[in-house]
Computed example of a mutant assay.
Amino acid sequence: MKTRVLGRTGATISEIGFGAWQIGGAWGDVSEDDGKRALHTALDRGVTFVDTADVYGDGRSEKIIAAVLKERGGQKPFVATKAGRRLNPHVADGYTAGNIEAFIDRSLKNLGVETLDLVQLHCPPTDVYYRPDVFEALDRLVAKGKMRRYGASVEKVEEALKAIEYPGVATVQIIYNIFRQRPQELFFAEARRKNVGVIVRVPLASGLLTGKIGKDTVFAADDHRNFNRHGEAFDVGETFAGVPFEVALEAVEELRALVPANVPMAQFALRWILEQPAVSVVIPGARNEAQAQSNAAASALPALDDATMAAIAALYERLIKVHVHHKW
């Protein structure tokens, strides 16, 4: 497992992390035992960065992580969580110092630690990025020792660019994959210039870029790929990267010709992301041991050649860009 530095946090972490949304909820039936085994497998394969949130299973994901780390003992991985989405309604005015601290106190309890490694604002309304008092409140919580550093998980490139204007924002989590290429145009350069860590989520476009989903695939009622297909529950860009399902399937079929023999498409898609030096870590999820093992193995793949990178860029321009580029 290769490592990278998480921006100015200075933390050296695995370039493939573990996204813990799937072991929390909203991905169909993933048992607690399966979630634990998936995380154990990832850690056994050299993963040292775990990303979760307080709303993943209403704390279930954080508690599973805490249980696994207690079972293992020894040196712990870097664990990042998120706060803000427990607000109901989820509005900018809810991002008060008191609410944020209460969320963080709950995550401290769920994760069983005295200090959180990293707290990220969890895709807050855009207006939050224009409220310095929110970031001042986060600075005070760092000073109180409740977290070591903070960042923001964003929906839009514009939000990412605004977030890194605040000197305390050490990391930005953003969607970036073969179907969502806009971050590489400006944001990555700015993040490198300011030494901000970049955490890439939704790297496989909710499973589309595994090549294992077809038009007849049936998703469980409690799987967001069923209930959020059109943005009914949260931002549609979080489900299938916002690409219309039939369009995405067409693009996946064309992509197959570019994937080397004996390389899973999921690993190929992760390797494409790692071609960007601005990326600190990519956080695919895993429902089971096999997926966790495959994700970790992507770190060992060789770099993609220029012809392959150009072909992927052309595919995006021709089929995908019109559907997503201007939205996020």
Rank of each mutant, 00 (worst) to 15 (best):
Leu6Asn: 08
Arg8His: 04
Ser14Ile: 10
Phe18Glu: 07
Gly19Tyr: 06
Trp21Ala: 13
Gln22Ile: 09
Gly25Asn: 05
Lys36Ala: 12
Lys36Cys: 05
Arg37Lys: 15
Ala38Phe: 11
Thr41Trp: 12
Ala42Pro: 11
Leu43Ala: 05
Asp51Tyr: 06
Asp51Gln: 05
Thr52Pro: 03
Ala53Trp: 00
Asp54Cys: 05
Asp54Ala: 10
Gly59Pro: 07
Ser61Arg: 01
Ser61Phe: 01
Ser61Met: 09
Glu62Tyr: 00
Lys63Glu: 15
Ile65Phe: 01
Ala66Thr: 10
Arg72Ile: 10
Gly73Arg: 01
Pro77Gln: 09
Arg86Asp: 13
Pro89Asp: 14
Pro89Gln: 08
His90Val: 15
His90Lys: 13
Asp93Tyr: 05
Asp93Pro: 00
Gly94Arg: 05
Tyr95Gln: 08
Thr96Pro: 02
Thr96Cys: 03
Thr96Trp: 13
Ala97Lys: 01
Asn99Glu: 15
Phe103Thr: 11
Ile104Val: 11
Asp105Glu: 11
Leu108Cys: 09
Gly112Cys: 08
Val113Phe: 02
Val113Cys: 05
Thr115Ile: 13
Leu121His: 03
Cys123Glu: 15
Pro125Lys: 00
Thr126Met: 08
Asp127Pro: 13
Val128His: 08
Val128Asn: 13
Arg131Phe: 05
Leu138Pro: 11
Arg140Asn: 10
Val142Thr: 13
Val142Ile: 14
Lys146Val: 13
Ser153Trp: 07
Val154Leu: 00
Glu155Phe: 11
Val157Leu: 00
Glu158Ile: 15
Leu161Gly: 10
Lys162Ser: 04
Glu165Ala: 12
Tyr166Trp: 14
Pro167Ile: 13
Val172Leu: 00
Val172Lys: 03
Val172Tyr: 02
Val172Met: 01
Ile174Ala: 00
Ile175Tyr: 01
Ile175Pro: 00
Tyr176Gln: 03
Asn177His: 07
Gln181Pro: 03
Glu185Lys: 14
Leu186Ser: 12
Phe188Pro: 06
Ala191Lys: 01
Arg192Cys: 15
Arg193Thr: 14
Asn195Pro: 13
Asn195Ala: 11
Val198Leu: 11
Ile199Leu: 08
Val200Ile: 15
Arg201Ala: 09
Arg201Ser: 11
Val202Gln: 06
Ala205Gln: 09
Ser206Thr: 14
Thr210Ser: 03
Val218Ala: 06
Ala221Asp: 13
Arg229Gly: 10
His230Trp: 12
Gly231Arg: 00
Phe234Asp: 09
Asp235Thr: 09
Asp235Leu: 00
Asp235Trp: 02
Glu238Lys: 01
Ala241Ile: 02
Pro244Met: 10
Ala251Met: 03
Arg256Trp: 07
Leu258Ala: 02
Ala261Cys: 01
Asn262Ala: 14
Ala266Cys: 04
Gln267Tyr: 04
Phe268His: 01
Ala269Glu: 02
Leu270Lys: 06
Leu270Glu: 11
Trp272Cys: 08
Ile273Arg: 00
Val279Asn: 02
Ala286Lys: 07
Asn288Leu: 08
Asn288His: 12
Gln291Arg: 06
Ser294Met: 14
Asn295Asp: 12
Ala297Pro: 04
Asp305Val: 02
Asp305Gln: 04
Met309Trp: 07
Glu317Pro: 07
Lys321Ala: 15
His323Arg: 02
Val324Trp: 08
His326Asn: 15
Trp328Tyr: 15
Trp328Thr: 15
